[in-house]
Simulated assay, not measured.
Amino acid sequence: MLFYSTLLRLAGLLCLSAAYSTLSDDTLKSIPGPGDDFDVKKGSILAPILQTRVSGTPGNAAVLQHFVGFFKTNLPKWNLEFHNSTSTTPTSNGKEIPFVNLIATRDPPGAQVGEVGRLTLVAHYDSKLEPKGFIGATDSAAPCAMLLHTARTLDAALTKKWESIATDGLDELDEQKGVQILLLDGEEAFVSWTATDSLYGSRALAEDWEHSFHPAMSTYRNPLDSISLFVLLDLLGSTGPHVPSYFKTTHWAYKHMANLEHRLRELGEFKSSPNHPSKLAKRKNKKPRDEPRFLVDAEKGDDAFIGGFVEDDHVPFMARGVEILHIIPTPFPKVWHRMTDDAEHLDMDTVEDWTKLVTAFVGEWMELEGFFDFKKEKRKVHEEKTEFGIP
């Protein structure tokens, strides 16, 4: 059975890499940015996350409730689950600390348990205990906000695609893929990073999912097997990030994201670019400058992968055979684990660029070209704000 499951996984990866569907230039140019929703003081998505949120504290619970409220209000078709665990920590004096992971899933209508492969988007939402009052804006408030915006931006297109499949009677065997967002608790160490003082939520979730079997003869053996790709965002939001490609087996997916970054830059859609129209307009010398890259390893050869990686929430999943795309800068941002990792030190142009890039990547993975109607969605949001008296 394990051999059969492994063959299915390898076949699935080959199929995904071969059948990847690109978005048009018009679609890329139309992807909405988060706008006021990412205002660090009053934005409806980002601002509520920018607080201390150490696992087991009221701030942590408040941020979790913010996530739940966001999905219930904006994305009622997503299924929400809580994964609860407890553990002692080096600072808890023998007391069990609660850790709560939020799992938000959008599968095709009528999908059967064990028959859906899922693109899994991941960020941790807890913050570090020390220094006292640490916010963790890049670590990882901004990545969490990016995932919420991505889900909201793509939701209507997913609905339209799946309705079209049902109406047109297309072959559903090729369409059993969904999207899953994991907002994980307890990534941070309470004292210092060790195998037992870190990754509390992800370790518990990976272990439970390993032993949560789907019905016999399912395409996917368990929830871990259902993960087509585990895309982990961390430490995003500082200027000038350099994100390597860490894993040879998912380099093809990294290259697709890197290609999207290149196209968005060429289309003038990256606000952090020195050649963005808004920056060119302010410069006396209009000559384009060298274009930087977030994803710096698009041309990396197979012989350049030497096995190094950054320990993070993916580790318990990777140890169980899940394919990982880790989007984390090396070197880390200068604000890493410092009090300056706060709202004021976020580079909002970079935050918005990452948000658009992740949204485009998911849109391509889910083959949503032709199913977007951003003008209609913009009108809907405007009408809802007017109804509730929101400026």
Rank of each mutant, 00 (worst) to 15 (best):
P288E: 10
Q176T: 07
L2R: 09
K378S: 15
S228N: 07
L102N: 11
A137Y: 11
L28D: 04
I324E: 05
L28Q: 06
D171A: 06
F388T: 09
S192W: 05
K380C: 01
W365A: 13
L121C: 08
G389D: 05
L170M: 08
F372E: 01
H242L: 09
K161Q: 07
E387N: 06
T355L: 02
F309S: 15
F388G: 11
Y220P: 11
R320K: 15
D185R: 02
F372K: 03
M146W: 00
E81F: 03
P32S: 14
H314Y: 07
E323C: 14
A18G: 05
I45T: 15
P316N: 09
E367N: 07
K177R: 14
I49E: 05
G59K: 00
A304D: 10
L13E: 10
Y20W: 15
A137M: 05
G12M: 01
K385L: 05
R106Y: 15
L232A: 12
H262P: 03
G94Y: 10
F99N: 09
K95T: 13
A204K: 02
V315K: 09
L14W: 09
V122N: 13
W354N: 04
A145M: 01
P215I: 04
L173V: 04
M1S: 14
D341H: 11
D126P: 14
L23C: 10
T250P: 10
S44F: 09
